[in-house]
């Protein structure tokens, strides 16, 4: 005990506890009411049948059975899950791959590298709603910027968001544009932590840019790669805003852009096409998503951390 009331008598001890409690109370009350209680309830509600807003009876694993094994719910679940998996893989390859190249280019600190960092990070601070609507306009088949530019080189109008084969890719592109700056600057920060001596030594040994990138930089930024991978994974499986804005609540066209976040929202809060809301099924989906993301993250972290140490 080093603080002021060390040698104080009983009334002071009592006053001290009161003071500390007063400092902690506001934050604790908010946390208990709006984090602890809702999170615990989310698990409990998954085992209940709902009548409107109130749980009406315990039904065991029925909600889980429905969303995982009963058609048409299970079809919707797996269709959405498939798109989340595609999104994760595509973002790892295109978003983080590009980010790695840009970061490596910025590491050279050529003229203009600082302003480039500010530019590449600018879309990151914008709302996904702004980014989504902007690209929805740009991807318009007739008047959109993308097809107008492609028209200049003789490529005909492509209905990017209207075609089942191109819609998900188009939305992913908008997502890459929105977030590219984030992995770029996280990876760049990792690269800047590599000691100059190591890079110099490799250069003197005659390593070219490619060897430097693959043999020195890539292994040494393993901790940053871990962070970017985990955040991409969590982001891909909680993906909601850009698909909602660009493809609508049902993942049009024909469910080709449906993701778990949209499906969860439709189930929990209803929509014009899927009809009534079901808090029980929604809770089961939320629990499954949480357990899946938390479980895979924990396993991946162990694996990636071990990889960091080995290298």
């Amino acid at each position: 005990m080093t603080d002021g009331w060390r040698h104080a008598g009983r009334p002071f001890v009592w006053r001290r506890s009161l003071w500390i409690s007063a400092l902690l109370t506001p934050a604790l009350v908010v946390m208990v009411l709006f984090v602890l209680w809702p999170v615990l309830s989310a698990f409990r509600f998954a085992f209940y049948d709902f009548n409107g807003l109130r749980p009406s009876g315990f039904i065991g694993l029925e909600n889980f059975r429905q969303v995982l094994f009963e058609k048409p719910y299970s079809d919707w679940t797996y269709n959405a899950l498939k798109h989340n998996v595609i999104a994760f893989l595509a973002l790892m390859l295109f978003e983080n791959g590009t980010a790695f190249l840009i970061a490596f280019a910025l590491l050279k600190a050529l003229p203009g590298h600082r302003i480039h960092q500010v530019i590449v990070f600018l879309p990151v601070v914008l709302s996904a709603v702004i980014v989504g609507f902007l690209w929805r306009l740009f991807l318009h088949p007739l008047f959109g910027l993308v097809n107008q530019l492609l028209g200049l080189v003789g490529i005909g109008a492509i209905p990017w968001l209207g075609n089942e084969n191109t819609a998900l890719g188009s939305i992913l592109f908008a997502n890459v544009w929105h977030w590219l700056g984030f992995p770029t600057l996280v990876l760049l920060a990792g690269m800047q932590r590599i000691s100059k001596d190591v890079l110099e030594a490799a250069r003197l040994d005659g390593a070219g840019d490619y060897a430097l990138m693959t043999k020195i930089v890539w292994p040494l930024i393993a901790p940053s790669v871990t962070i970017v991978t985990i955040l991409t994974f969590i982001g891909s499986f909680n993906w909601f805003e850009i698909p909602y804005v660009m493809a609508g609540l049902t993942g049009s066209p024909g469910g080709s852009t449906d993701v778990l976040g949209l499906y969860f929202y439709r189930t929990a809060f209803g929509s014009t096409t899927t009809g009534i809301q079901d808090f029980g099924q929604g809770s089961a989906l939320a629990v499954l998503m949480f357990v899946f993301v938390a479980g895979v993250t924990a396993i991946a972290l162990r694996y990636l951390r071990r990889r960091e140490i080995e290298q």
């Binding site: 009411l33 709006f34 984090v35 809702p38 309830s41 989310a42 509600f45 109130r54 949480f290 938390a294």
Partner: peptide
């Protein structure tokens, strides 16, 4: 407090809404 950093509050939206 730290454990609160690990839970995605979006997934608890149903009980949060009821609350």
């Amino acid at each position: 407090f730290l454990s609160g950093m690990t839970v995605p509050l979006k997934l608890a939206i149903i009980p949060l809404f009821i609350q």
